[in-house]
């Protein structure tokens, strides 16, 4: 038998992710607005984000998924000029506080230098980084509230 036939076929490589992450972010197929998924413990009622496998307060394991507020307040923000290896700069990140008493670390979509502490921001979806195949990974981001849209 020729040597090459002895070779085991290489298993097909799993493609790297392009979405981060179905447990965190829902983009409804019907075109309605995307939302972050909060996890409410069915035993003690504690609401948390991101998803926990076990409730930190009571070790309950059953959760109700609730949609979190799309608007929040930007607690603090920074423009990054030296970033993580492999990430294009500049980019912007910050903490957004939601009315549900939850803080989200996220990238912000908008102009460098345009954000200030305590401004209102809203959820959007965009590219946070590239995956190992060079394709964009989508996730939640926040942006300034669009005043002109009259929201």
């Amino acid at each position: 038998m020729p040597a090459k036939d002895k070779k085991k076929p290489k298993p097909a490589k799993e493609p790297d992710i392009t979405f981060f992450h179905p447990d965190l972010l829902e983009i409804p197929a019907d075109g309605t607005a995307p939302y972050l998924k909060g996890y409410k413990c069915k035993s003690c009622g504690m609401l948390d984000f991101p998803k926990q496998n076990i409730c930190q307060k009571c070790w309950g394991e059953d959760f109700e998924v609730v949609s979190l507020s799309r608007r929040g307040t930007l607690y603090s923000v920074t423009d990054i000029f030296i970033g993580q290896a492999g990430m294009e700069t500049p980019y912007i990140f910050g903490y957004v506080d939601l009315p549900e008493d939850i803080r989200i670390f996220c990238q912000l979509e908008g102009e460098i230098g345009s954000f200030t502490c305590d401004q209102d921001v809203e959820l959007t979806v965009g590219t946070i980084r590239m995956n190992r195949e060079g394709l964009p990974i989508k996730s939640y981001k926040f942006k300034a509230v669009d005043v002109e849209a009259g929201i």
Partner: peptide, 17 residues
């Protein structure tokens, strides 16, 4: 980290606030 966090930036958030 997946969302781009670096230690410089985390401290910058503290400075900004």
């Amino acid at each position: 980290t997946m969302h781009g966090a670096v230690m410089t930036g985390k401290y910058a958030l503290r400075a900004k606030r």
